[in-house]
């Protein structure tokens, strides 16, 4: 255990937790928008996978990580629009259509990878940025201020999301549509337009999350996300549909995983326990769901398609 309390290991644990949290955070923030407006998009993982492949492939071809991130965002927008079409216009059962999007993304990203790339080829990664001054602080500098650039971007998007949801007209419309679409509609708010916007934001951020994951790892492989999109959806509930709560959830999830890895590396947890340890995040999430459900209320219209009354 004493091996654990060294500067290098503690810094690596915290920094690792933050890195693991980033794709979850981005995807979950996007999903928050959709759910606040009453749409559950279960296809996040599929969008992430296609975003990851597109981002990876673009970087492989151009060598420019920013083009890669933009390409991931672009495919996220397209798939976000497609998801809106499926759940808003076509009013498909949201719990199920998302599974379809997931399976499609899982298969399609792998198919494209096999066709266009074949064997994994490493790509350029995001540059690491040491924040001047702050990164020199002992311990804390290494933990928080010496990360790749997407890490900062992801965490900066939290206050942006808070501002949009809580302070803008658009945010007010999102909340109104999620709580009482009929009333919003009667006040002249276009329910479907708001939902199209939020689900597309969700797709965009999911695509960005996938691209961020692939470019941060510098590689792509079949099922790269390993179902992180589903974790992200759970984190939205965990965070009680609030960006800060979502961020807390993503960080907690990242830290638990990072801690378990570190403990296994140092032999503090025996290898045979790894399956049990891997259960911990899901069980914690279920418990958190119970607590959240007691204290907070989901948007009333969540998963309910809206048809204007006759």
């Amino acid at each position: 255990m004493s091996d654990f309390f060294t500067e290098a290991v503690l810094i690596a644990t915290v920094a690792g937790g933050i890195r693991l949290a980033v794709p979850l955070l981005l995807a979950a923030l996007g999903e928050t928008f959709g759910q606040r407006s009453g749409v559950l998009n279960l296809g996040v993982d599929g969008i992430m996978l296609l975003g990851a492949f597109t981002g990876y492939y673009t970087v492989l071809k151009t060598g420019n990580v920013w083009y890669g991130l933009l390409a991931g965002i672009a495919i996220g927008i397209v798939l976000g629009l497609a998801s809106s079409l499926i759940s808003v216009t076509l009013q498909a059962e949201q719990g199920i259509s998302g599974i379809g999007v997931y399976l499609f993304g899982l298969g399609m990203s792998d198919l494209l990878f096999q066709r266009l790339v074949g064997t994994p080829v490493p790509i350029t990664k995001f540059p690491k940025i040491d924040i001047p001054g702050l990164s020199d602080i002992p311990w804390l500098g290494g933990m928080f201020f010496s990360h790749s650039v997407v890490v900062y971007l992801a965490f900066l998007s939290v206050p942006v999301a808070m501002f949009i949801i809580n302070k803008t007209n658009f945010g007010m419309n999102i909340r109104a549509v999620g709580e009482n679409p009929e009333a919003a509609d009667s006040l002249g708010v276009s329910v479907s337009r708001v939902r199209y916007a939020t689900v597309t934001i969700g797709g965009t951020l999911a695509g960005a999350a996938g691209a961020a994951l692939a470019i941060d790892l510098g590689i792509f492989q079949q099922n790269l996300t390993n179902a992180q999109g589903f974790i992200a959806i759970a984190l939205v509930y965990f965070g009680a549909w609030r960006p800060l709560g979502v961020m807390a959830g993503a960080l907690l999830y990242g830290f638990v995983n990072s801690l378990v890895l570190q403990f296994k590396t140092l032999g503090i947890i025996p290898q045979s326990w790894s399956d049990i340890a891997a259960m911990a995040p899901a069980i914690i999430t279920i418990l958190a769901l119970v607590i959240v459900a007691r204290r907070f209320r989901a948007p009333s219209a969540l998963t309910k398609p809206f048809t204007r009354g006759t």
Binding site: D3, A8, V9, I11, A12, T13, A15, G16, R19, L20, P23, L213, L217, I219, Q221, Q222, N223, L224, N226, Q228, N257, S258, L261, Q262, K264, T265, L266
Partner: peptide
């Protein structure tokens, strides 16, 4: 996991830290 690339990457970070 045979498939979790991100976790494998973090495991390598953990080794480096140790």
């Amino acid at each position: 996991s045979f498939s979790d690339v991100a976790l494998a990457s973090e495991a390598a970070q953990a080794h480096a830290a140790a």
